[in-house]
Amino acid sequence: MKRDLLPLLLIPLLAAAAFPLVGSSASWVTLTVAGLAMGLMIFVMASGLTLTFGLMDVLNFGHGAFIAVGAFVAASVMLALGTWMQVDSLWLNLAAFLPAVLAAMAVSGVLGFAFERVIVRPVYGQHLKQILVTTGGLIVAEQLLKVVWGPDQITLTRPTALRGAILLGDIAIEKYRILAVIVGLVVFAALALTLNRTRIGLLIRAGVENGEMVEALGYRIRRLFVGVFVVGSALAGLGGAMWGLYQETITAGIGGQVIVLVFIVIIIGGLGSVGGCFVGALLVGLTANYIGFLAPKVALGSNILLMALILLWRPQGLYPVAKR
């Protein structure tokens, strides 16, 4: 198969174009790693959303709720295990960090299951109602977070081993960003392997293209959708936990803030495409960091501009899914 490599080439092209503008190679490396880390965290949050849209055409604006819940649950676990977070031992730090992200994934996954059953299921196939009811779900979830965790922002401190930066000559790379890159790449590899090497992945890919035909072959696509929705919610929880620790402050509005970036990424990537979501997320992360450094005043609009440019080039996104 002849792979479409052009969108993938945009990543090194963007990085190369930024190099002369940034000037210093040390700053360029720092910004590039920061951009990749940010992009991969957004990818983790967005991957489930793009698949649920692809499978059942569900526009879930409530996805931000799973991100926020993940951030709050992880923060609670890490604060409860505060002593392990503060000691100067990578293993003890990880012993606090791992249960925190696992708990975030579990709670977000369970919430996703309930959300699908109560809020999404009654509005299958009705886009306007989906937007209204899932946005309502996000607002309710934000208010419930304030009820449970209080209205004030929670301040988190990263584990000792993940604070600061690694210095390579005059290049500084934040340790936490390296972890974010590793986690993002592991999630991408796991999703790619599942989608390309397993029967369930085959079913998901086929279902994204033509769910009706998958049903006519004898497979129950709704069950598949619920499974993908729950896994997507759990990944949003993982992304939220990572993002909360990246920002070091968490508010009930965290989901609503990040969901804008998440939607930009899945639109850029081509709705329903995990590969497109990956490339789109990296482009968004890199653009945000380069523009934030070069022209901070236009940083806020840079991702919208990126989306507009990409949609002018490819109106269906970088990797459009061949729909029925």
Binding site: M1, R199, L202, L203, R205, A206, E209, N210, E212, M213, V214, A216, L217, G218, Y219, V321, A322, R324
Partner: peptide, 21 residues
Amino acid sequence: PESMAIFGDLTVQENLVLAAR
């Protein structure tokens, strides 16, 4: 179906593997 509804992103092999339930 009249539209054939083959899965275009899947290979010929994958289309048939999926159909063999």
